[in-house]
Write a protein that binds this DNA or RNA. Structure first.
Lengths: 204, 204, 204, 204
DNA sequence: CATGAATGAGCATTCATTCAT
DNA sequence: TATGAATGAATGCTCATTCAT
């Protein structure tokens, strides 16, 4: 490793530390509680230091969002249902989506609540992501395959993925905002939802 | 009109003015930008005056939320599809829901994003509302009727309404967060969504 | 009673009501918690009304202080030791003084803590009061008599009264600021104090 | 002096400046007039800066109180009567006590008026201090010695110190609240007081 | 006599950000 | 690279007081 590379790697290490601390703070205490100072004090650096790695608060949040997004996508890409019939894979993906949202409610809220995380043009980012990123691609892929295999009737891919994602988002938010709901109740909601969507997809 | 009544009406007028200004500020600039001072300066009154009409900021926001909610419910109760077959009424209600959300995106966000508008348990409030309030009752009613009329198979009412509402919410948020999407695009998403749900409901 | 007199009496009634409410608020919640609005709301009148009876807040507090002072003096004038030997009467007065202070700690604090109750020239008022008012006069009287009766050596009256009062005040404040002290402990302090002073007076 | 030390000393300098400004403001205008902003503006810094040196207002006041207390104790420890007979030392301590109170009336008020300076139990703090702190210990020490030397009769130490302190406090407050009293008048009060107490101590 | 409406001044506190070192 | 020092802007809120009615 060259000197330059090592330095860069050191630099990246602190950068990651900041990102993790912010993600952590966000997860534990919610968006409103995230402040540059708190992040800094959490990792034992000065507030000023943050600015050496991120342009400003918005930039930091942006990267936290992106980071979580990457992890999200990774999870969606590994649903563990790789060999199942396509429709089953789709359903597996939906379950993973909801599970991830429930595990990271604050991050999820910030990431998918517009304006907060990204200053501009969230939605485009999201919808673009929906088709391009390898994570959402799972939904798209299983959908395509399900259609190809005749499990469900053919329909334009992109709008379908988008719609599924949107309804998924609705369920995720419903569950996130119902913290008092027990696991059983959550499961019932999820199953009801999946049944509804899968049935909907089966018909044309 | 008695003197007292006139005075009261004057008082109500300013109260309404404050509510409108707050709603407006919320609509234009988002929740984070709403401050007592900004509201006051918008209507040319001192910040102190706000406190003559609302106990504190939370109280003010609460009333803004409630106000919008009342209008929302009113709209949902008048979908103009009163004589149509139940399933059609259901669909009309879904369209109205989305339309209202798109017309009042920031209000919608605050109202349905938990914690912000209402201090305590949003979700419960929402789901309770979903069945009880006359607005959401439209969904329940048309769903019941659709089942009674044999348009769709029978299923437990409450979970179904909840699921529909959640997916509706997802679509609403998707569209709200896609401000750059043209009307045509929006319509395509909405139609795709409705088709998916209606088809889902038709099967059992 | 003439019309004018009746009106005046009505007027006095509300005035008294305000004074009592303020005294009460002061007693219960302390000086910092006394505000014109709170007083007004306590008696069901508007804040503005207070200003019809008192020039401003300071004026109101002034009168509360005076009011309590009058009651204080009354109590000091009725120690129930009228027939006892003079020195005994003096001691009785000292006990009553401390008792009253302990019963009205917040009032006492405000009244005898300068600046707060009276804007200017407290002390003069107090020391003048000490000799003139019939209450402190009891101390002066019993002191005079005790000297005349040969119970204690002769000494200039005024400085002696003043000194006794000052030490009395110190003990009162000590006890007021030791709310955790039990009654037994309080009694011990009081007895120790009285013994010290009486002994001091006996010698010359 | 190392770089670090110099920097620290700079920092301490501003800290001291803030403390002095606060003490000054307190001394000149009283506790109610002390506000973070006023303190800041007095030293030409922004209000925010204060928070770099003190956690909050209460913390600042606490340190002002403590600071004065330290100076107070120092003075009480150096009455300049170290070789005199114990009773004389006691009297010297009493004189110093009163003198210091008169020199720092507002500080004295805040420090010894409970609740204001310290949130929790003042009185206990004071009485504990009365025996433990080296300052008040002077009183205790001279009292003990005076008893040992047979200058005054034996009596339980703690209650005696407490009583003396309380009466001392009363005199201090009397004089503080009599700003119009001339020096001669003050001296007469002090002498009368001391004579009374000393005589009281002599008898048993 | 009593009030409702309104306000200006003030407060403690927090935050993101800059700058010189 | 990292930081300590400092700040301006903002926020929610409370209060005493005035004024027209």
């Amino acid at each position: 490793m060259s000197v330059r590379a090592r330095i860069d790697s050191e630099k990246q290490k602190l950068r990651r530390l900041i990102l993790q601390a912010t993600t952590d703070l966000l997860a534990r205490e919610g968006f409103e509680q995230v402040s540059i100072r708190k992040v800094a004090s959490r990792i034992g650096y000065s507030a000023t230091t943050i600015y050496l790695y991120f342009k400003n608060k918005a930039d930091l949040i942006d990267h936290v969002v992106d980071d979580g997004f990457a992890r999200f996508m990774l999870r969606l890409g590994n649903t563990g249902a790789g060999d199942s019939p396509p429709l089953r894979q789709l359903v597996a993906g939906m379950r993973v989506y909801i599970a991830f949202a429930l595990e990271n409610p604050n991050w999820y809220r910030v990431t998918f609540s517009s304006r907060l995380g990204r200053s501009n043009n969230d939605a485009q980012f999201l919808t673009e992501a929906a088709t391009r990123e390898k994570g959402f691609a799972v939904l798209a892929a299983s959908l395509t395959q399900a259609m190809a295999a005749g499990e469900i009737p053919k329909r334009p891919l992109y709008p379908a993925v988008q719609t599924i994602w949107a309804t998924l988002h609705g369920i995720a938010m419903l569950l996130i905002n119902s913290p008092q709901a027990g696991i059983k109740e959550q499961r019932r909601v999820i199953e009801g939802y999946i049944e509804l969507i899968v049935n909907g997809l089966r018909v044309r």
